[in-house]
């Protein structure tokens, strides 16, 4: 409990956390406006519209997770952290718990902007909105995915340790490497994070010929948990010289 409280203070007392969340939500709102303006030019479905604007927030969640551990090494606060709590596994678990909470918080903020701004904008046009149930399942998928992305970032950060390197590694893997297996024959691509997150968000092109929402969520969670476990093992064994 003490460790959770300590991690909450850590996360909330640096500006970058709030800046990233703010920019992510701002861009989400801009996208909503953009889609209303350009909707006639696109052939996207209504579900995709509802999910629109998660892109930058997903990046922010990954980075938030990466920063939660790499700043400790970069600025040498890992030493004081592990002096206060010499057992390193519980510290990492506390970080995971707080980041999951942060992801859910960001997800709910996304939902608030989406429901409060994007949906009224969309419904002001001709055509109909997706059903309440469809919208709710997208929202649930987004909230869960944000939490899991934070964990994913934490895992990569703990493994790579260098801040810039970890951010590049997390983003490059997630957005550049992991979509590649989709090009392979068969359905191997469904088991990589980028496709799995599409499934989790309930996007039609991911769920129709791939995994369902629940299975997509499990795949993403498995990746994040695996990375977190490996990262935690490495952090627990490493010497802290800085």
């Amino acid at each position: 409990m003490n460790l959770l409280r300590s991690e909450v203070i850590k996360l909330t007392t640096i500006r970058s956390t709030w800046t990233m969340l703010g920019i992510g939500l701002l861009v989400e709102a801009l996208f909503a406006g953009l889609y209303v303006g350009l909707a006639s030019l696109t052939e996207i479905g209504p579900i995709v519209e509802v999910e629109t604007g998660t892109g930058l927030l997903m990046v922010m969640m990954l980075v938030l997770g990466v920063l939660a551990i790499t700043t400790e090494f970069r600025h040498g606060t890992a030493s004081t952290t592990f002096l206060a709590a010499p057992r390193r596994y519980p510290v990492m678990v506390a970080k995971l718990g707080v980041l999951l909470g942060a992801g859910i918080f960001a997800g709910l903020a996304y939902v608030a902007v989406n429901a409060g701004l994007a949906l009224p904008l969309f419904s002001s046009r001709e055509g109909s909105l997706p059903s309440f149930g469809d919208i709710a399942s997208v929202y649930a998928g987004v909230v869960i995915s944000f939490a899991v992305l934070c964990a994913f970032g934490l895992g990569v950060g703990a493994i790579v340790r260098n801040q810039v390197g970890a951010i590049i590694a997390a983003l490059a893997f997630f957005f550049i490497l992991s979509p590649l297996p989709e090009l392979l024959p068969g359905n191997i691509g469904d088991y990589f994070p980028s496709q799995a997150i599409g499934s989790l968000h309930g996007l039609p092109d991911a769920t129709e010929d791939g995994l369902g929402q629940f299975a997509g969520g499990l795949v993403l969670a498995a990746w994040s948990l695996g990375l977190f476990a490996l990262g935690t093992l490495l952090v627990a064994r490493r010497d802290l010289n800085e």
Partner: peptide
């Protein structure tokens, strides 16, 4: 240990609060 081991963006009070909370 080292006088530089702080997150530069966090205030002195919050740095201590983080440690106090953990312990």
């Amino acid at each position: 240990l080292e006088a530089t081991a702080f997150h530069p963006g966090r205030s002195g009070r919050n740095h201590l609060r983080v440690l106090a909370a953990a312990a």
